[in-house]
Amino acid sequence: MDEQELRDDLRIIESAFDRTAYQASIDRATRTLSVDVLARMQQRRRFPAWKVLAAALPVAAAVVVLIAPWTSTPPSVQTTPSPSVASATVPDAPAISSIPSVSTTPGASVRKAARNTPRASAAVTDEQLLSEMYGEQFVNGLSASIQEDQPTMFELTSQDLRLLSMSVNNEDAF
């Protein structure tokens, strides 16, 4: 194609597609482009992707929580029979022999031993403690009065009450 032919063809093209009109239309379309770009950049700086993601996470989590019960499969039926009450194992109370020996020396060692003693042997310990503190005779008398259903020394008579009130009012009465 020679240059003259090319120029002729270009004139035909210009008749259909006016370059100036084309560029004017592009200028109209891009009039606010620089402002739009700067605004979008500012917006991205203010709300970067990680911030948007962080804001969306709780919503996504809530959606998952709401949807999960509808989408999850029901739990499979357990074929292993549940342990019956009869076969339920109850931890054995420690045997008396396993109770730590209580020192006969009154004081801290006794209380410490009592604290460390398992609850199943509490009655034995109480009895031992009582006999340590008040003497064996007192403990025997107490257990005899309980067995005979007789009033114990803890059931106060009217005279005891009078004495007690006197002691409260006047400690020197004793």
């Binding site: 194609m1 032919e5 090319l6 002729d8 063809d9 270009l10 035909i12 093209i13 008749s15 259909a16």
Partner: peptide
């Protein structure tokens, strides 16, 4: 050059060219 030639032929085939 090929593009210009083809476009000119296409435009000549339309009423646009007659109008011009």
């Amino acid at each position: 050059h090929h593009a210009v030639k083809k476009l000119a032929v296409m435009i000549k085939d339309t009423d646009l060219y007659d109008q011009w």
